[in-house]
Nucleic acid binder design. Structure first.
Lengths: 108, 108
DNA sequence: ATACAATATTGCAATATTACGATTATTTCT
DNA sequence: AGAAATAATCGTAATATTGCAATATTGTAT
């Protein structure tokens, strides 16, 4: 045990969970917020910004990228990272949908 | 190593991350979606709904509750769970804010 | 009180995550 | 070509998460 039973859940549930999971670490929230502030930047800038070593930042970037939250394009010997707007819109509309359904009734 | 360096990040970043983290598992998304469908229910209903044992469901409920995503009120010998609208609204407005800022500029 | 029903807690094994030093590509600039 | 800059990957230690059987707790009914 210890492994998540992904196969028992719908692909929609797994997709939302994987985006949320990628955002479930303060360093990755900090990366998103930094990208939001500067629009786009390279890994080294984030290493300077955060109290984490370069391999750690690189690993966090990889997770954000594989969840579709950021994009990276090669620019010379550096890689330019930026937020992938679509993924934020996807999860935002998921929550908006929840709120809409919640408005209809009250709870305990 | 292995432990998240929460102390290096802002309380806002930690709060968003902890809500996102709680939603970062398909079983917990499934619980939220079930609660959304039935408005409120007891732990046993969720155990019947999900392919997980009772202690596992109980643990997931605990994590959702400690992240503030659900509320539980004692009703006899059962506990009635429901979604805490405020927490969903909080994370939703966080993403809405990101999208607004993203609209202003384009990226790589 | 006793039995039952609903959940929480404990303890543990399997697996995943976090963090980083060391190393390895890859590109750019002399 | 050689040095510098940038970032990914490898290996590994520390810690956290997931899942469940067994047990404990709490309230309800008989």
């Amino acid at each position: 045990m210890g492994a998540t039973k992904t196969e028992h859940f719908t692909s929609g549930q797994n997709q939302i969970a994987s985006i949320a999971k990628a955002l479930g670490h303060p360093a990755r929230i900090a990366i998103i917020e930094h990208l939001l502030k500067v629009n786009e930047c390279i890994c080294g800038d984030i290493v300077n910004e955060l109290p984490l070593a370069q391999p750690t930042v690189s690993q966090h970037l990889k997770e954000l990228k594989s969840a579709g939250l950021i994009k990276g394009t090669i620019e010379g010997n550096a890689i330019c990272y930026c937020i992938n707007k679509e993924s934020i819109e996807l999860i935002n509309s998921y929550f908006t949908g929840i709120i809409k359904k919640l408005k209809e009734s009250d709870c305990c």
